[in-house]
Amino acid sequence: MDRISGLPECILHKILGHLSPESIARASVLSKSWRSACISFPDFTSSENHTFQHKAFLKHMNDDMQIRELFISALVPDAHTASAIAQVISLARIQNPSSIKLRSLSSIWGNSFEDHEPLWDSLFACSSLYELSLKEFRMRFSSPWPSTSTLMTSALRKLTLTNVVLEDETAMRSILAASPLLEDLVLVDLGLSKLEVCSPKLKTLRILLTTRMMSGIVVSSVELEAMNLQYLDLCAPMSYCRYLQHTPLLRARAYHLHLD
């Protein structure tokens, strides 16, 4: 009987960790569970050599197909790994990707703001991005916070931040200022105490707060300046909603408040 395929994904990842990219690609057609493990395999944890091989793989892809969507799910335990991913993003940037989704499999609590910093330069230089999604990161732009010349996300329409901790309001303000066409903003357990959203084209705003996040860092105050907002979805425990303040500018057509 096939027992190996029933191993938890984290163990399958460790098996894949002993294999070359060719063998991993072959393992990915064995069955659905292997495919899933190969897709989520955090292959940036290993040596420089491995990253190099991955570069070769990307180059191979460049030859015959365009990268429209880039999804990277990886353990990002240190600044070194973040730099390796930044390199891959820089390579992909030449292909003008429309969507980048970046998921860190490491807990943000093990990381410092410095660890993740190398990523932001390469990521926010992707001027072709229509959609950007980040999960489990600490975000800070090197000070002084970047001018509009380094943040080039002017085509961005949809931004999703899940479990992203921001050092202060400036990072959020910079991103929004650099993305004037943003229409859809989703913030799940954002680590930022004071949220200011000033975005002229924004149509949909979803803020989801769950209690599992640390107290004191979750959003406790929201200020909105979004004259085209049509849909606002706030989903938060009652204890948080007490602190939420809305400016009178708000004229959302649909307004949903979920209170536990």
Binding site: M1, D2, I4, A27, V29, S31
Partner: peptide, 26 residues
């Protein structure tokens, strides 16, 4: 995990399936 990897390394997909009795569910 290295032991399992050694049973996969350098093999064709069909051979790996045979080794572990994996049925394709695609």
């Amino acid at each position: 995990t290295e032991k399992v990897a050694s049973m996969i390394r350098g093999k064709k997909v069909e051979e790996i399936r045979e080794t572990f009795k994996i049925k394709s569910d695609f």
